[in-house]
Amino acid sequence: MIRLAVRVHRANAEVALAELLELAPAGVEEVDLDDGVVEYAVYGQPGELPSLPSLEAAVGGALVAVSTTEVADDWAERWRAFHRPLHLGGRLTVRPPWEPADSAEHDIVIDPGQAFGTGAHATTALCLELLLELPLPAPGARGALDLGCGSGVLAILAARLGWEPVRAVDFDPLAVAATEENAARNGVSLAEVRRLDLRREPVPPATLVLANLLAPLLLRWCEGAVSATTVIASGLLVEEADRVAAAFAAHGLREVARRGQGEWAALRLDAVSWLG
């Protein structure tokens, strides 16, 4: 078994991932590295993996390095060991299917197949923390939108917390499929799961928008209309948080909470008219 890894600049990671998934639709592993670099890796037998020229053409100017390594025969067990449950107090456990349930108030099972993991990444965990702290939605709320849904874990928790109807969108068709599968696995009904290109399409209005996206995509959203009462924005480097908060403030959304973990930050932004 061969592991083919491509390292790209984090600012171009979303675009690079979309292109790589065209070459490797079975899924891409994602690892955050230092110095503003993300590593994407695919696995396969020699001759099954994308060619180096195809990878270089797909990633373009975002490319930092390409490497190949042989993987030990026990790679499947090592892969399982990499995906551990996420525990947030006694309120939430997010776990892969092979881990046992515990006594948490909300137990969510996420298959870490494809490129999306189980929700343990810092950006997702921070978003989940802020979501758990929100008051219950008021009658007449327009529900929640998971913008850049990935595995669907944010949409699933939002539905469990009563933020219905819940919709989920993502640029990657594999994320759409993974969200549908994980919602069904957890007995959650989502009002809509579909593909959306944030660079070309407007973001649907919602009372709550959960946006675990890189800063350039969040800023792109702010270039158009932002129709939400509360936005939880994650996927930010610590040094990007102030700029993103200012962009949402221009749409009447004021920062009311900030969380950090390592180099990552997440914001809760509420409409000024709603805060009073």
Rank of each mutant, 00 (worst) to 15 (best):
M1Q: 06
A5G: 03
H9K: 13
V15M: 08
L20H: 04
E22C: 00
A26K: 08
V31P: 00
D32M: 14
D34A: 15
E56T: 11
A58N: 11
V59Q: 05
V59L: 11
G61C: 06
E70L: 09
V71W: 04
D73Y: 00
W79A: 15
G89V: 08
R91D: 15
T93H: 14
R95W: 10
P97Q: 13
W98M: 06
A101R: 15
A104M: 04
V109K: 02
T123A: 10
T124A: 12
T124W: 08
L126T: 01
L128Y: 13
E129N: 05
E133F: 01
A138C: 01
L147H: 04
G148T: 08
D170R: 07
A175W: 02
V176A: 07
V176W: 12
N182V: 04
N182A: 08
A183S: 12
R185A: 15
A191T: 00
E192R: 10
R199S: 09
A206Y: 11
L210E: 05
N212S: 02
A215H: 01
C222K: 07
T230F: 01
I232N: 03
A233Q: 03
L236C: 05
A249I: 08
R254G: 09
A257V: 00
R258P: 02
W264Q: 04
R268I: 00
V272T: 13
V272L: 12
W274S: 15
